[in-house]
């Protein structure tokens, strides 16, 4: 039997899914063990048990100076920026994407411009954003928007163009105006693709968020990581990294579930 036709059974599949996670954990534990055996006060690879203790402390105990549980505050601050940035970017991208995809005049005007804009490295314009929008929340949200908006616009306008011409012509023969075609034909078919695009852009969005927080901020997950880096507090950094990964993963999962729930017609044909 060819390898491409061999399917793992349920048990084997579960094992295989868990395997890389286990291997990574074991490799880390061994590395940590070796270093700690040499030098018990080594900070680079803290033992998993140390990380668990630190994590418990970070999640439950308030900071002695400010009397707040910093991790939750950082999470709230970061998520607020992320949701605002991604939300505004997706709303703008939907509108602009529809216009570019449906209206030849707008397409001629904007498509090339957006293609060039999307080549600007967003982090390179971060100083400009700080100068223009100050060091507050606004510049961080704007960085996320600047970072993912061109990609979202290009992706969504392309998706609008991929709607079969037949479907659009059919709507025309039913007497639909351009507005009705946009609202009732293009937009509903764009929504599942918007969620797809947002899922893909969540990675870059986190990148820009943490970059902005690392450079100028007073709270936030990225800020905390770059703050404790000075003390080589690897246990704190690793806790934050695992927490961010978990948040990102849950967002991705939630968006996928949302898409399945809201747009059953996309699954039906598959």
């Amino acid at each position: 039997m060819r390898l491409i036709n061999r399917q793992p059974g349920v048990v084997l599949k579960t094992t295989l899914v868990a395997l890389p996670f286990l291997l990574a954990f074991v490799a880390y534990s061994i590395g940590s063990e070796i270093r700690l055996a040499e030098n018990p006060s080594d900070k680079l690879l803290p033992a998993p048990s140390t990380i668990a203790e630190t994590a418990e402390r970070l999640f439950t105990q308030p900071d002695r100076r400010s009397d707040r549980i910093l991790l939750w505050h950082d999470t709230a601050a970061s998520l607020q920026r992320l949701v605002l940035g991604v939300g505004i970017a997706s709303a703008l991208a939907t509108i602009i994407g529809l216009l570019i995809g449906l209206l030849p005049h707008v397409r001629a005007t904007l498509a090339g411009f957006v293609a060039v804009l999307s080549m600007i490295p967003p982090l390179a314009v971060l100083p400009i954003l700080f100068i223009v929008f100050g060091l507050g929340e606004l510049s961080k949200v704007v960085l996320i928007i600047v970072g993912i908006l061109p990609f979202l616009i290009r992706d969504l306008s392309q998706r609008v163009l991929e709607i079969p011409r037949e479907t659009i012509v059919k709507a025309e023969t039913l007497g639909a105006s351009s507005l009705v075609i946009a609202l009732r034909v293009a937009l509903p078919q764009l929504m599942p693709r918007l969620i797809q695009a947002v899922r893909l852009s969540l990675g870059p969005a986190w990148l820009f968020l943490i970059a902005a927080e690392a450079i100028a901020s007073e709270q936030g997950l990225g800020y905390r990581i770059f703050l404790v880096r000075r003390f080589l507090a690897m246990d704190v950094i690793l806790t934050y990294v695992i927490w961010i990964t978990f948040l990102a993963f849950m967002m991705d999962l939630a968006l996928r579930r949302l898409s399945q729930k809201l747009f059953p017609w996309t699954e039906a044909g598959l």
Partner: peptide, 24 residues
């Protein structure tokens, strides 16, 4: 591609009448 995939069968028929209205 002659029907709208995001509408149910009934909505597709209703669309035959409603698309000519202002907002569809």
């Amino acid at each position: 591609y002659s029907v709208f995939p995001h509408m149910t069968v009934r909505e597709n028929i209703v669309a035959g009448e409603s698309f000519r209205s202002r907002f569809g």
